[in-house]
Computed example of a mutant assay.
Amino acid sequence: MEQFHVIGAGGIGLAVATSLYKAGKQVLLIENNPEKIAFCKAHGAIVDKQSFPIKIEAFENWAPCPNVVNILCVKCYNNDEILKKTNDQSLLFPIQNGFDELLTSRPLIGEGIASFISECRPQKTIAAITRSGKLHLGPIQPWTKMPLLFELKSALRQGGIDSHLVAWSLPYKNTKLMYNAAISPLTSAGGFENSELLKPGKLRTLFFQLLLENHAILKASNQPMGTIGPFHPDKVAWLLTHKWVGESMAPFFRPSLKKTYCSMFHDVMGGVTEIENYNGYLSRLAKTSKSPSPLNDLALKVITQMASERSTGNAYWLNAILDAF
C-alpha cells in the first residue's frame, strides 16, 4: 500500500494527504475546484502552516488506477460522480460523516470516522487542525480486510494523525452521526459557531433534546454505538436526562467547540447539503423502528428550505426550529 489518491482537497483531505506524504507514500490530490488546483500547484498543500509539494489533478481528468487506494474525503452528495468512475475492483476508503447507502453497497476496503476538526480556507489548499481528535479506521463488516486497514492506520499514524484500528466502523459512525445530526442543523440554521449550542438557554435545551432523540432512534433501531470522546453515547444520554448534570458539565465542554464550524454551515449557501445523509437518514431509521423523530423531521425541513433559497443562517431560520420546539 504505497500509492494513494485523496479525493477532495478540503480540511480532512489535506490533513490525510499530508500525513501520508510525511509517511513516505506517493500521494495525488484530486480536486474539482480550479482555484484550489492552481493554488496547490503554486504553493503546495499547507496544513498547520507547513507546506508539502503534493501533486494535484483535476477530477475531470482523474481515473482510478489498479492497486491505488482512493480515499474519499468529499461530502456524500459528491459520491455519485466518483462512483461513476469506479467499479467493484477499485480500492475505495471513505472518510465521511453522513450515511450513503449507495456507497456502502460497494465492496469498500473500510471507512474512517474522524473526530478531529480540520478547517480549510476557501479556494485554497490551506488547512488548520482546529480541534484535536482521533481517526477510527474499520471495516464495513466486522473483522474483514484488517491487514489492509492496519497498513493504512500505520501510515497515517506515522504521518501524525492519531489513528486507531477498530473491528467495525459502524459503531463509531453511528456515534458521530448522533452528534453531527444535532450540531449541524442547529448551527447552520442560526449561522453561528458550534460553541453557541452550549450557552445557557432554550437553544441548549433544544440541542440536548435533539441529541436524546438521535440516541433513542439509534437504540430503537438496534444500531451499535462506540465511544468517541470521554463518554459512550449511553452515558451521554444518561447525563442529559439528568438535567442538572448535563447543564453543569456544559461549560467544561464549551471551550473545545470555540471557533469551530460544521461544514453544513457553508454548504447551505451553495444550495446542497448532507442533511439527507444526517437527519434524513435518522428519520428513515425512525420510521422503520416506529420511533418518534419530530426534531429530525423539522431540522430536515428547515435546512432543505434554506438550501433551496441558498440562505445564510440567521434568527429567522433558527426560530423556525425553536418556536416549533
Rank of each mutant, 00 (worst) to 15 (best):
A324K: 12
E81P: 00
G201P: 06
G280E: 09
N87T: 05
P292I: 07
E111W: 10
Q3R: 15
N296I: 08
A45C: 13
W238N: 04
D297Q: 14
L197G: 04
A42T: 07
M1K: 13
L28F: 06
W143K: 08
Q3Y: 14
Q26Y: 04
D234W: 08
A9I: 12
I46H: 03
F93K: 02
T288E: 13
K301A: 13
R121G: 01
G226N: 03
L318Q: 04
E193V: 05
Q141M: 08
L156A: 03
E193I: 00
K173L: 12
L83P: 04
W244N: 12
G112W: 08
D323W: 02
C262M: 15
A250N: 09
G24R: 04
T288Y: 07
I95P: 03
A63P: 10
A128F: 11
N70P: 15
K25G: 07
E213D: 04
L28K: 14
F59P: 06
E276M: 11
D297T: 07
P200H: 12
T205C: 12
L203A: 08
K243C: 12
S195M: 05
N222M: 10
P233H: 10
P34Y: 06
K85P: 06
L135H: 00
N314L: 13
L198R: 00
L165C: 02
S291L: 03
E213K: 03
T130F: 08
T312V: 09
A237I: 13
T18L: 12
R204H: 14
A181E: 06
K84T: 03
G271F: 14
A17K: 04
K287M: 14
W317S: 09
M306H: 06
Q223V: 02
Q89K: 15
I54L: 09
E119V: 11
K259S: 15
L165T: 01
T288C: 11
P66V: 13
W244T: 11
N222A: 11
T104Q: 05
Q223S: 10
L170I: 13
W238T: 05
Y261T: 11
E151I: 09
P171L: 05
E31L: 05
K199V: 01
T144W: 03
M249G: 03
G138W: 00
H136P: 00
C73F: 11
L212E: 10
R310D: 02
N97K: 00
R284C: 04
E101R: 12
P66M: 14
K75D: 07
Y172F: 15
L135D: 00
P294A: 06
L282D: 05
H266L: 15
N79M: 12
S293P: 12
E309W: 09
A63W: 03
L165W: 03
Q96V: 01
A42R: 13
H266N: 14
L318C: 01
P251Q: 15
N32S: 15
L240R: 05
E151K: 14
I113R: 01
L152M: 05
F93H: 02
F4T: 09
E247L: 14
T227D: 02
P142V: 03
K124H: 02
K235N: 08
C76W: 13
P230F: 07
W143S: 05
L149A: 01
H242A: 13
N277F: 15
G229Y: 06
G10A: 04
T86Y: 11
D234C: 05
A299M: 15
Q305I: 01
K202Q: 14
A127T: 04
Q305N: 09
Q223D: 00
V68S: 11
